[in-house]
Every structure is written in C-alpha cells, then in structure tokens.
Design a protein around this nucleic acid. Structure first.
Length: 360
DNA sequence: CAATCGTGGGG
DNA sequence: TCCCCAAGATT
C-alpha cells in the first residue's frame, strides 16, 4: 500500500500497546460475556457474544446472551435444539440471518468438530456467520492467539490516531493494515477488547473524551483538531417508504392467523401476521383482496403501524375480521392470542399485534 | 462490490 | 422528528 504524498508518515510510540493495556486494566468493564481476570475464556460464550454483538449494542445483546447461555450452556446444547426454538429466542434482536447462521455453525461445530471451535482464523472463517472480525475476535479473546480485530470501534480509533482522511468504506484495507501495525504480541485478547472499549467509551463517534485517552498525546487527529470529523464516511442512500396492509384474523376459538416467512431474505424464517406485499405504493383494493387469507369483509383499524428497517421505512395499515365458518380454509397457523409470546415474532410484528389488540 | 439485512437509543 | 449509529456477514 502506498502512502499518499499529502499524508504524514505513520508512526506510533513503542509503548502504545502497553499504555492501552494499562488503561484497560484500570477501566475494566463488567460485561456478561467477559471472563473475569484469571478465568479461562469459554470459546462458546465468546462466539455467541460476538455474533450477538454484530451491529448490535451491548444493552440490546446482554439479556439475549443471558437467556441463551442459561438455556443452552454449551454449543452442543444449542445444536441439539430445534431451529425454531432458536428463532423464538432470537426474536426482537434483529438481523435474523445471524440466528440461522448461528444455528448452522453450532451444527457444524457439534457434529464435525466434537463441540470444539477452531482456534485459527482461517478455520473460523469457514464457519457460517463468522467473518473477518469475528474470526479475529474469537482467535484473540477465546484462545489468546495474536489476531488483529477490526470493528467499527477500531476503525474509528485508528483513523483518528493516524488522521486518516479518506472515507469509509474504501479506506478499510488501509485502516486494517494500520491496526495490524499497532497490534502487540502480548495479551492478544485483552488488547482486542481494550481497543473496542476505548472506541466505545472514550474515542466515541461524537464528543470523544480525549482528556481520558491513553493515546491523546500522539493522536494526529486531535493534534489537528479534526477528531470529531473522523472517520469520514460516504453519504448514505436515503430510505424509501414501503406500504402494505396486514390482516388480523381471529377464529371462533380466539386464535389469530400467523404465517412463517420464507427462510431467506428479510425476516427469514420468522413468524408474521399475513399481509399484502410491501411495495413503494399503497396496495390497491385488488392487491388487498388477492392477499387476504380469507374472502371476508375486513374492518380497517384506526392508525398506522410504522417501522424502520435497515434500508426502508414501512407503513402498515391493519384490517381485522372474524374468520367464522370455514376458518380452517385459511393457510397458516392459528395461535391463541395469549400464546403469541412463544412465537418467533420480530419487532415489527409485535407492533402489529399490539396495534390490533389495542384497536380490535 | 454495492446492496441487503433489524432494532432501539441518543443527539 | 429524524438521522445517526452499534463488537458485520453474505451475496
């Protein structure tokens, strides 16, 4: 990789890593998946936590981690359970491909590797749901082997200390190379977590607390006064709005009609309240009639359910009906309203349920 | 390789 | 209210 002429030479003090580790030792955070000093890390717990933490905040992941590890203490326990139980337990956490890949990975580790995770990045990368970041994190944190962990925190820290002004995501390879340059041979797991802790608590996206930073004395971005502007990022595409109509159908036994979504794609494998397709336009009467699970007179409930996914906004109207005679003709599963908690309902569908119960 | 894939909290 | 963002992976 060549250094652009306008960029200052990259260098770090030789004691950069020891200083960060010292900071880490004095600012240790107590997280549910983190081994206490002297404890041996459990690769299963490290793996599970890293999957849950992908693009997910610590407060959001923590209760799920506790529930999973209590119910499935080992990877073999997880592998022995039905996929649908895992999807129910994951419901609400988002990015459901993670849950499907988590399950696949548990199957492979349990059946082909005797319940033991590989301790090398190249082998970890072969497993479902494990990419460059997670492979490095498991290698360093679970096995104590040197690996360069690069997540959003590390990218931010590195882009600042070296004042890298090229925008993400194009500059990722360069940031990775710089991060590798900083990575020490000693205490690989602690160093990886220290970098992420630094980014999460000190070198934050907005208002970084440079006064508390162990690297503030050599941080190039701080010296230039541009720390709050780094890392630069390419502009994001704006989110379109999609619209649909959801069908709240109750049978004479007080059960509601639900369906299982396709295994792939958005909310793959999760449970839903039946609806029209979600399109860029409000569904027409014909589209509504075509999507209705039964030919009934539907009553429109007041209000709209709004939800924002990763790449579009959704507005759902909800219509309701009593199934009456012939309700068994409808395709799907009938679930008593008081047992909806046992279903793999993603957050958007929980909103629909709450809306229907409040207005129906 | 750009797009896809959730959710909830914070400014 | 709205946009930003969080311990990314997959195609």
């Amino acid at each position: 990789m060549t250094t652009p002429p306008h960029t200052a030479p990259k260098s770090a003090p030789s004691d950069a890593a020891p200083r960060l580790l010292s900071w880490y030792d004095h600012n240790r955070r107590d997280l549910p998946w983190r081994a206490k000093p002297g404890e041996v890390a459990d690769p299963y717990r490290v793996w599970l936590s890293e999957i849950m933490l992908q693009q997910t905040t610590v407060p959001a992941a923590a209760p799920y981690f506790r529930a999973f590890t209590e119910r499935w203490p080992t990877v073999r326990d997880l592998a022995a359970t039905p996929l649908d139980d895992v999807l129910v337990a994951w419901a609400g956490l988002g990015y459901y491909a993670r849950a499907r890949n988590l399950y696949k990975c548990a199957q492979v580790v349990a059946t082909e590797r005797a319940g033991r995770f590989p301790d090398k990045e190249v082998a970890l990368l072969e497993l479902p749901g494990i990419g460059a970041y997670t492979a490095a994190a498991i290698t360093a944190i679970a096995f104590g082997h040197k690996a360069t962990v690069v997540d959003g925190n590390v990218e931010r820290v590195v882009s600042r200390v070296f004042a890298v002004e090229e925008p993400l995501p194009g500059v990722k390879p360069k940031l990775r190379a710089l991060a590798a340059l900083l990575t020490p041979d000693e205490r690989p797991g602690d160093y990886a977590q220290a970098m992420m802790d630094l980014g999460a608590t000190v070198c934050t996206p907005r208002k970084p607390k440079c006064m508390l930073c162990p690297w503030s004395d050599w941080c190039a971005a701080r010296a230039a006064g541009i720390q709050e502007q780094l890392p630069r990022k390419a502009a994001k595409a704006d989110k379109p709005t999609r619209r649909g109509v959801a069908f709240w159908l109750l049978n004479p036994e007080g059960a509601v009609l639900l369906r299982r979504r396709a295994e792939e794609g958005l909310l793959g494998g999760m449970t839903e309240v039946p609806s029209t397709p979600w399109a860029g336009h409000a569904p027409t009467d014909a589209e509504i009639a075509a999507a209705a699970p039964l030919d009934r007179s539907w009553r429109r409930l007041p209000g709209v359910v709004r939800h924002t996914f990763s790449h579009f906004h959704l507005e759902l109207e909800v219509v309701a009906a009593k199934a009456g005679d012939g309700w068994r003709m409808a395709e799907g599963l009938w679930v008593p309203v008081d047992r909806l908690g046992g279903q793999a309902l993603p957050s958007v569908m929980m909103k629909v349920v709450r809306h229907a119960l409040a207005h129906a």
